[in-house]
């Protein structure tokens, strides 16, 4: 087992399960790195098949590294009432990619959130892990430009 993965798996403080191991790896590396699946199988005694089945069930697990910057826009009904589609369009134009994707240069990952839990301040987004409410296309654009100028953010939300 890759010692870096081993260290992450061994440092868990809560009940260890297949899911907890996968969450720990994604929190540490930003995605399920190569070798993650067999390592989790080895650690938990589950089959590789079972580990894959869990990793592909929960929608936030990814097998590719995310972009340097995370642009997440809430896609729940409260936010859509406040035109989150216009925000999404703004973000798509800014990053030059479509909804739920990463730019080829790995600079930006754009993703829709089902609900960010801040419906009272809709529409809401999470930019490099920072929650921002009452977004407008203009405010989003300012934030995105600031994000680009600030360089590496890389918060794995």
């Amino acid at each position: 087992m890759d010692p870096k993965i081993q260290k992450v798996l061994d440092s868990q403080t809560r009940t260890v399960t297949v899911l907890s191991c996968l969450i720990a790896i994604q929190e540490s590396f930003g995605y399920l790195v190569e070798g993650a699946i067999p390592a989790v199988a080895q650690r938990t005694g589950a089959s590789v098949n079972d580990v894959y089945s869990v990793a592909t069930f929960y929608t936030h697990f990814r097998f590719q590294p995310p972009g340097e910057h995370q642009i997440e826009l809430c896609w729940g009904p409260s936010c859509q009432i406040f035109r989150s589609d216009a925000l999404m369009k703004q973000a798509e134009e800014f990053a030059g990619i479509k909804f739920n994707g990463t730019t080829p240069d790995k600079k930006y990952t754009l993703r829709g959130l089902e609900c960010a839990g801040a419906c009272a301040l809709a529409p809401v987004g999470k930019l490099d892990g920072t929650l921002v409410g009452r977004l407008t296309p203009e405010k989003l654009r300012e934030r995105l430009i600031a994000m680009r100028q600030n360089g590496g953010g890389g918060h794995h939300g």
Binding site: R14, L19, S20, F57, Y58, F61, E114
Partner: peptide, 10 residues
């Protein structure tokens, strides 16, 4: 009592 974290799944 401990926290149990789940993945994204409604």
């Amino acid at each position: 009592v401990e926290l149990s974290l789940t993945g994204e799944s409604y």
